[in-house]
Each structure stands twice: as structure tokens, then as C-alpha cells.
Amino acid sequence: MTTAKTKQKILQTFLDLLSDHPYEDVSLPLVAEKAKIKLSDMRGAYGSKLDLVAAFAESVDKTVLDERDEDMHDQPPRDRLFDVLMSRIDALDGHKDAVRALHRAARKDPALALDFNRLEVRSQKWMLIAAGIDVSGLKAGIVAQGLSVAFARVVGVWLDEDDEGMPRTMARLDKELDSGSAFMKRLNGIEGFAKGMRSFLRKASAGRRGRRRQSQDDGDHEPDYSSEEPAGA
């Protein structure tokens, strides 16, 4: 069984290789060779390059969750989310070249972009949790997807920014969150309308069933002639 230490060594080797090579050129045998491990250990740790990308995303998630600022709990949701996403940028900072390689690969390969998007949506659900923003069900998936797209735009700016203060990155995040706030208002309005329609349809359906039952009861009722006198009596 592959140890946690070996898995971490493999992941770090993968990220180091991405810093100098395109994603498509980094093969599992190359990672194993550079990490100085057997292919069987490679197989036991990660079954594909996508598994390595998933492990990277998970490690970033953990860093953000561990370093969450508890003093932000009384701040507005938008401010908490801004803080969490900037923490995510900070967590990515030591792997900027690797992130750049992943972004380039996604732009060239739509199928790979979909795979990466699925991983990012999962991560953004955790970022929402870290920010104390409670969304669930179908709405959680919609919000996390929107946040994934927005964060990808922010990362695109960050990759081209050299200023350590990251003014352009923060300005872009501000802009994306403003757009997201407007989207959430529309989504809440749609959700409220949908709930109202579901309630109306349930009541209408219940009313139809009640009328059908009443009609059946009336049709099944036999007239009682026992108290009537015979004709001609």
C-alpha cells in the first residue's frame, strides 16, 4: 500500500514537472521516473493524471479550510467569500507555473476542460461552506458552477499579474462577486417563483383528485326507494 508520504512526493513531482512542461507531455511513467518510484507504486497512488489534478485541488481546499479566518463570521457573506477566494489564490501562489500549464491545457482540450470544471465545482462548494454561505440541492450546484467560472476568470488575471499586492486580481474578484450577487438575486427570485408554482400545482392537483373522488362517490350511490309508496297505491 502506498504511504501518504509517497503520495505527497508523487504529487509534488507532478507539479514540479508541470512548471517546466505542458500538461500533455507529463506522463505517469515520467512522474514515476522523476519521483524515483516503481510504476506499481504509481498505480497504487494515482490511477490517472486527472487523479493527480484532483489531489492538487483537494490539497488547496484543505489549506483554505485550515486557514479560514474565524473573525470574518460577522461580516457580510460577500466579504466572507472574497476573503476565502483570496485565500485560495494565496494557496495557489506557490504553484503558479503549474496552474498556468493546467489552464493552457484546458483551453486546448474541451473534454479536459469539462473534467477540470467538475473538480473545480466540487472545490467551490467547499469554498461556499468555508464562507458560511448555506446553499443546498440544485441551487448549490448552480451557484458552485457559476462561482467556478467566475474564479477561473480571476485566476486568468492573477496568472498575468506580477504585482505582489495583486490589485488587478482583487479588482477582478470584486467585479465577479458583484455580478454573482446580481445573479443570486435573480436566482432567488426564480426559486421563489418556482416554489410558488409548485405549491399552486400541488393544490390544483389535490383539488382535481378531490373532485374526481366526489364524482365517483356520487356515481356509485344507489337511490333509496324503500320509503316510496308503490305507484297507484
Rank of each mutant, 00 (worst) to 15 (best):
R186N: 14
H221Q: 13
T13P: 09
V60C: 06
G196V: 01
P110K: 11
A131W: 00
V64R: 02
R122H: 00
W158R: 05
G94Y: 05
D134I: 03
E222S: 08
V84Q: 04
M127S: 10
K5I: 15
V64G: 03
S48T: 14
F193D: 11
E164Y: 01
L52W: 03
D25N: 05
A54R: 14
D79F: 04
L173E: 02
Q216T: 06
L173M: 13
G141N: 10
A111S: 09
G207E: 06
Q214M: 08
I190S: 04
G219Q: 15
R68V: 05
A54M: 07
A150C: 12
M42W: 05
Q8M: 09
E120W: 00
A204L: 11
A140R: 15
R209E: 14
V53W: 11
A144G: 11
V53A: 10
A113I: 11
D83P: 00
Q75Y: 08
S215T: 13
K9W: 05
L28Q: 02
F200R: 09
F151A: 05
V149R: 12
A194G: 05
G210F: 12
A98T: 02
G47H: 09
E67N: 15
D93Y: 01
H95V: 09
M42F: 07
A152E: 13
K62C: 09
S199H: 03
E176C: 07
S48N: 06
F116S: 02
R78G: 02
K203A: 13
P167E: 02
D162V: 08
N188R: 12
L50Q: 13
A113K: 10
S123W: 05
R122P: 00
F183G: 04
L138Q: 11
E164D: 13
D90I: 06
A194I: 02
K34M: 08
D90A: 10
Y46N: 03
F200N: 00
